[in-house]
């Protein structure tokens, strides 16, 4: 049972965003730009950052949803599974390993990001903007994870919900569906 009455039948973040469209709009805009906007990091790489942070924060809804999105974009499930355990063991670039270590540090505290972590990312070829966006994506998912769990939102009854959600995140993105969400069942 969520801690507050949510107008919607929707589990996880979607019910919150539909209940409060005023606060949802800037959150959706920020996410759409960071995860789907023009970027030298691929959409899959940015989903991996979101997944690693959500996993570290033990947010089940966000971790499962973004794992599904990353898997769909990558066309396989091994990479995402390995980065959650230890980025250094995963088949991602040296640059991505370094960025994922920064994301893991941000998750604990902004103060945990050290010049050494940033230098490693730069020496692996990360641009300043990629470092900026990694920090902000990690910070944004510290918001999402706390929002979703801090209000005790429900998990979907059926695990296939996440596959449908992942397809929506890949094919449509993070903006609100023009037709709304009344057609979706948990």
């Amino acid at each position: 049972m969520p801690y507050i009455k949510l107008d919607s039948h929707l589990p996880g973040i979607t019910g919150l965003l539909e209940t409060r469209k005023d606060t949802a709009q800037p959150i959706r805009d920020l996410t759409q730009f960071l995860l789907r906007g023009q970027n030298t990091l691929t959409e899959a790489e940015r989903e991996l950052i979101a997944t690693v942070v959500s996993n570290g924060n033990e947010c089940r809804f966000c971790t499962t949803a973004h794992t599904a999105a990353a898997n769909l974009l990558l066309g396989e499930e091994t990479t995402c599974s390995l980065v959650k355990d230890d980025p250094d063991t995963a088949p991602v670039s040296g640059k991505m390993k370094a960025l994922l270590h920064i994301a893991n540090a941000v998750r604990v505290s902004g103060k945990n990001v050290t010049p050494q972590l940033v230098d490693r990312a730069k020496s692996e070829g990360a641009t300043e903007q990629e470092i900026h966006d990694t920090v902000l994506i990690a910070a944004l998912f510290c918001l999402y994870n706390r929002y979703v769990d801090g209000l005790g939102t429900a998990l979907p009854d059926d695990a296939s919900y996440y596959n449908t959600l992942a397809q929506r995140l890949v094919n449509h993105g993070y903006t609100r569906l023009p037709q709304g969400y009344s057609h979706i069942r948990p």
Partner: peptide, 10 residues
């Protein structure tokens, strides 16, 4: 928790 991490993380 986002704003603080953004400000200190960079």
């Amino acid at each position: 928790c986002m704003f603080n991490r953004y400000v200190d993380g960079l």
